[in-house]
Design a protein around this nucleic acid. Structure first.
Lengths: 242, 242
DNA sequence: TGCCGTGATCTGTGATCACACTTAGGCTGG
DNA sequence: CCAGCCTAAGTGTGATCACAGATCACGGCA
């Protein structure tokens, strides 16, 4: 994990001062949580990699306490695990578990996409199309920017899910991405050129078209194909425990 | 919250010493988490009720540290919330949010039931039937035992979900129950006689029959009707914020 | 040479202290 | 008698200390 000082980071935005949910306290523990969360989703923390509370605290320029809180939350999300030895590491996912998560993702995210197709408005579509364009451009480029492509993919998916207007569903999906992020993005990181092989652009195009047409089942099918495609790609190249 | 000493509690079982998942450390923080979790699902903590870390720690016979960890995990699950004032309380759910959670429950739990219908074996069915029988007996009794009925209902649902063989789905469903538990069971607690009015026994019977017949769509429909029925009941009697 | 014991060092966990902030209650001044 | 300040108790958050247990490398014994 690279050095990253919390004090130097960008300030947490607080877009809606009096929204329905409490304003998401900006405690140090939350900041550490977000930092580790981003590292996990981006695949910068490899499966099996061990974390030390003291080391992380030192890296982030805080004491051990906020790290303890952040790690215990991530352990509750199953994004980290503490071994019987008390060692904290990012979980090594088995092939069986990976397939299980993929099935759950197809159901949950597929429902979100179908719902989005019913409720999506002209306010959401431009942003969705923009993320799609960025991803396609990057993937088809002779010199693809891996990080930019992965972020565009993530933004595209979550822009769609947010259009469904079901916040509790988004929290569930974020939990799922937190678990598969390390295995998914670690391989993308090692072979950025293969981004195009999963056929993601094709699925994305069908997905956006279905959304624009209000075709719920079409959107569900396209998203299921997208997830299944990337999962199949990971299974061939990823090193998943038996 | 009633007095409940952690030291006097039953020891946490450790059924599978070398299973895939780590053996679920038995730290004090985890015990506090389980204690609060049970109180929330059972509806013994009313929505809006405030918690004090020091008070909970004293009640449970520990220091503040394990309570801090447990509460931060529950806040991450959205089963508790910390207000801008730093006060910790169980969230007051709005009618809108309640309906959203109900929709998500129908999709997620419905999928679990459908999957269970496909994979359920003769090893799971007897236990499921037993929970169903306990619930029906209690609900139709002239002197119903509220707590026993609620537990049977919970055991019935989760026995079915576990039969689906998708652990990550169960974790998601537990998170959902943690959020609706307070509003759902608080009203049941106040009017135990009305347990029968939701028509839960009818839906349960159809559900068990569909499971035994391997009828996935039938199981999904029966479970959806069960959830929708109890939700409609809550909406009439419950005091949900607008 | 090979193996086992052993101590230094690291781990997470729990307790305690310190602090900024909020809130409720009693007092004073009008 | 009522309003407004103002103190005191209580809150979560963060830091620091203490401790049991695990890990691993080194050195002595067979």
């Amino acid at each position: 994990m690279e050095r990253r000082d919390l004090h130097g980071g960008e300030a947490r935005e607080r877009p809606d001062p009096d929204g329905a949910a409490p304003p998401a306290r900006i405690t140090l523990g939350t900041q550490v949580y977000d930092a580790l969360r981003d590292l996990l989703i981006a695949g910068e923390l490899a499966p099996g990699e061990r974390l030390s509370l003291r080391t992380v605290a030192e890296r982030l320029g805080t004491s051990m306490m906020p790290v303890r809180e952040a790690v215990s939350r991530l352990v509750a999300d199953e994004a980290l695990e503490v071994l019987p030895n008390r060692a904290v590491r990012v979980p090594v996912i088995t092939l069986h578990k990976f397939r299980e998560l993929t099935r759950v993702r197809i159901v949950v995210e597929g429902f979100a996409a179908a719902e989005a197709a019913r409720t999506v408005g002209p306010r959401d579509l431009p942003a969705i199309r923009e993320h799609d364009a960025v991803f396609r451009r990057e993937v088809l480029s002779p010199t693809p920017d891996r990080e930019r492509a992965m972020r565009a993919n993530r933004d595209l998916h979550f822009a769609i899910y947010e259009a469904a207007g079901l916040p509790s569903l988004i929290a569930i999906i974020e939990g799922l991405w937190l678990r598969i992020g390390p295995v998914l993005n670690l391989d993308m990181r090692s072979s950025p050129r293969r981004l195009a092989e999963g056929g993601a652009q094709t699925h994305h195009a069908a997905l956006v078209a279905a959304l624009a047409a209000g075709d719920a089942e079409g959107a569900r099918a396209a998203l299921a194909a997208d997830i299944a495609g990337s999962a199949a790609f990971i299974e061939t190249t990823g090193r998943l425990a038996p």
